[in-house]
Amino acid sequence: MLRDDDFAIEVTVFEEGVPPEYRLYAYRDGQPVPPGQVQAAVTVRRLDGEVNRFAFRPEQDYLRGNATLVEPHSFDVEVVALEGGRRHVWRFPSYEGRTTIGAEAARAAGIRIERVGPGVIDETVEVVGRVELDPGATAEVGARFPGRVVAVAAHVGDRVRRGQLLARIESSESLQTYSVYAPMTGVVAERRTNVGDVTGSDPLFVLADPGRTMAVFPIFPRDMERIRPGQPVQLGGLEGNRAHASIIRDFRPEADAMTGATQARVPLPNPDGFWRAGMSVRGRVTIARRQVPLAVRTEALQQFRDFTVVFAQVGNTYEVRMLELGARTPEWTEVLGGIRPGQPYAAEGSYVIKADIERSGASHDH
């Protein structure tokens, strides 16, 4: 309610069943003034410098604004009214979803700024599978000639280098002793012999390179037409932040007789030996990719009232921008409207800004 001596203007924003619009009610000495006796204009100046001007026309018992009051409803307002030969002017701030955080405090809070711009939106399918050793990462080591095992130099779990001694065998034919060496660098996964055994055609040791692992995913019939060799895959654990980029290498030739699923094989980088055969692994397969004109980081999105928003940055001030959204991925979300191209926004740490706004109560009821 804006007052000037005996004259007053009630400024309201009406949005029941219509886009938000200004409606003004005039009073003199506390009594309603017919809207046809008043001329009014409202000017709002937004944080980013945009200026919106509204003219009004009489309707029923109020003056109705001639345009939609676009969100956010956060601006400096000027109201001018002419009635009975007198001119009334009011100026006041009307802010919501706005807060100021100094640059040093923003850095300390983990707020990182990016600009709204083009992005790549991936259509993905999530799959869950298990870690296996790469078939090419194992070797079965046998005796060259039948004979008696006279020495064993490696045990299960031992790390061995290529060319390292594994066992010594006394040949049954020549009675000469010969050595069995590791054909690859890796870990002794199985030891199937002991001193005194007589060798035959069965392997004595199985070696494995734990750094060469694969993620194997069951691909069910509903996804078979969409998932193909060569498609990118983001790999990670069921929990935690570990992530690896890879591609689908191939499919096993046979399908599961019960489920009809085929097995997609994906190389899984394992330089630190974290992944072990049998562990569960999650994959996100990119099946389509498209460029969009505007996108923001999905991490930046927050809920504000009934809207999904990001926080635009102007200097040290942050303010909500209500977004119209398209496709969403874990990394990027397509923006169809609500923010200008090139606008700086809080790509990381947006939850800090939201919490600061909620503490200050910088919102309004609708």
Rank of each mutant, 00 (worst) to 15 (best):
A103Q: 12
E15G: 12
E123K: 13
T100H: 03
L82S: 13
R212C: 01
P221S: 05
L175V: 02
R305Y: 09
R192Y: 01
P232L: 06
A362M: 14
T317K: 00
I169G: 10
P19N: 07
A257T: 13
G147L: 07
Y62F: 15
Q31L: 14
S174G: 05
D365F: 13
R282T: 02
V79S: 01
Y345W: 08
G129T: 07
Q302V: 08
P34H: 11
V11N: 05
E324F: 00
E254A: 14
G278V: 01
G337D: 00
A40S: 13
L294W: 01
A167Q: 02
R3Q: 13
R87G: 02
L63V: 02
R148V: 14
G326D: 01
M224L: 13
R115A: 11
V44A: 13
P232A: 04
A355G: 05
R168G: 02
P20Q: 09
V51I: 12
A215H: 03
V266K: 09
D48Q: 06
I111F: 08
V198E: 08
H364A: 11
M322K: 10
V120M: 10
V79Y: 08
L268V: 05
V160M: 11
R3K: 14
I247G: 01
E358R: 06
P203S: 03
P20V: 03
G315K: 09
P221K: 12
R290G: 05
G278Q: 05
A67G: 02
V216H: 01
A264E: 03
D76F: 12
